[in-house]
């Protein structure tokens, strides 16, 4: 068990180094020159040269990578070229927003996807099953931005129940915060719920036809124990994988949904940064989300071990 965890931990560092190469390398391929972007309309050659010098843009790529990494390992992600603020500060500012949105969307996805998947597997071939599949197909094929706009039209414009957009920090009122977040969370969660439902359904169908489920029934166990204990424990493994991946996806920012609801999260931060050639911000945000992704996968591995005793020995 410990060797499994240690092995998993041991590959995290090389993975992160590799990710940093990719982030830094791809960044260099982006068209445009930050020095030009910053120099403004005048394009004074002296000013451009000065900017190049201070940003070390005239040095070889390997050196620039080394400077960047030296800062990163000390917790310094660099300075935003555009707003002249430390990237670390920007990330910390947006992180709670994105984290809250991702957590709420995940909650929506789990609460809808898993029970619906279980129901449609248990009632395989029935009206429940077809109904759940239709809802899942709808969730999969509805674009997030469209659903977002429709919800704004219904709940904000027509009914006036919820604010159409904007973000309120929880410190300024939890009710207002939740009211602002519930629609974007539902929009994001709805699409993931559909995928969750399909995966839960197929995993449950497979497990329900297994010999040990028959054994559980032969013992005279109630169906809730057969389904909830014997079947679900084994069917949850692929669902955990999917959950970790989807959560990582959410953390990297929901660009369209944040745009529609004007939520100031990672998605908005990174889009603004890319348009403005704000290298340091793009690198910093992508590195943070990649790290979060890797961490989530590690947590999923731990969850596997808790669920699957064969991995523990």
């Amino acid at each position: 068990m410990m060797t499994f965890l240690v092995r998993r931990l041991a590959i995290i560092l090389p993975t992160l180094v590799f990710v940093s190469f990719i982030i830094f390398g791809l960044q260099q391929l982006l068209p445009g020159d930050p020095a030009l972007a910053m120099a403004g309309e005048e394009r004074d050659p002296d000013a451009i040269a000065h900017i190049r010098k201070t940003l070390r843009l005239d040095e070889p790529i390997a050196m620039r990578y080394a400077y960047w990494m030296a800062g990163v390992v000390q917790g310094d992600l660099g300075i935003s070229l555009r707003i002249q603020k430390p990237v670390g500060e920007l990330v910390l500012q947006k992180l709670p927003v994105t984290l809250q949105l991702a957590a709420m969307a995940m909650l929506v996805a789990l609460l809808i996807g898993i029970p619906m998947g279980m129901l449609s597997a248990v009632k395989n071939g029935s009206a429940w099953d077809y109904g759940a599949n239709v809802i899942a197909l709808w969730g999969l094929s509805t674009p997030n931005f469209w659903l977002g706009i429709m919800m704004i039209l219904l709940f904000s414009v027509e009914l006036g129940w919820l604010p159409a957009s904007g973000y309120v920090p929880p410190a300024e009122g939890l009710g207002a915060n939740l009211a602002a977040m519930v629609m974007p969370a539902f929009v994001l969660g709805n699409a993931i719920a559909a995928v969750m439902m399909r995966h839960t359904r197929s995993a449950m169908l497979q497990v329900l036809s297994s010999d040990y489920v028959r054994t559980a029934r032969a013992k005279g166990l109630y169906e809730r124990a057969v389904i909830g204990k014997h079947a679900w424990r084994n069917a949850s493994i692929p669902v955990i994988t999917l959950g970790a991946l989807e959560f990582g996806q959410l953390l990297s920012g929901a660009v369209l949904t944040e745009q529609v609801f004007s939520i100031p999260g990672f998605g908005k931060l990174i889009v603004d940064a890319v348009f403005n050639r704000d290298y340091a911000v793009v690198q910093g945000v992508v590195l943070c989300t990649a790290s979060a992704y890797i961490l989530l996968n590690f947590l999923a591995d731990i969850a596997y071990m808790l669920v699957n005793p064969r991995l523990r020995s």
């Binding site: 297994s210 010999d211 040990y212 028959r214 054994t215 559980a216 029934r217 032969a218 013992k219 005279g220 166990l221 109630y222 204990k229 014997h230 424990r233 084994n234 669920v307 699957n308 005793p309 064969r310």
Partner: peptide
């Protein structure tokens, strides 16, 4: 029927490898 099963009326199966749930002791 459920009350009877596993109590007065019990069954064992062909495949001991797959008839026990791998996730529980």
């Amino acid at each position: 029927m459920r009350d009877l099963r596993g109590d007065r009326l019990a069954m064992i199966f062909q495949e001991p490898m797959t008839s026990l749930n791998p996730a529980f002791t």
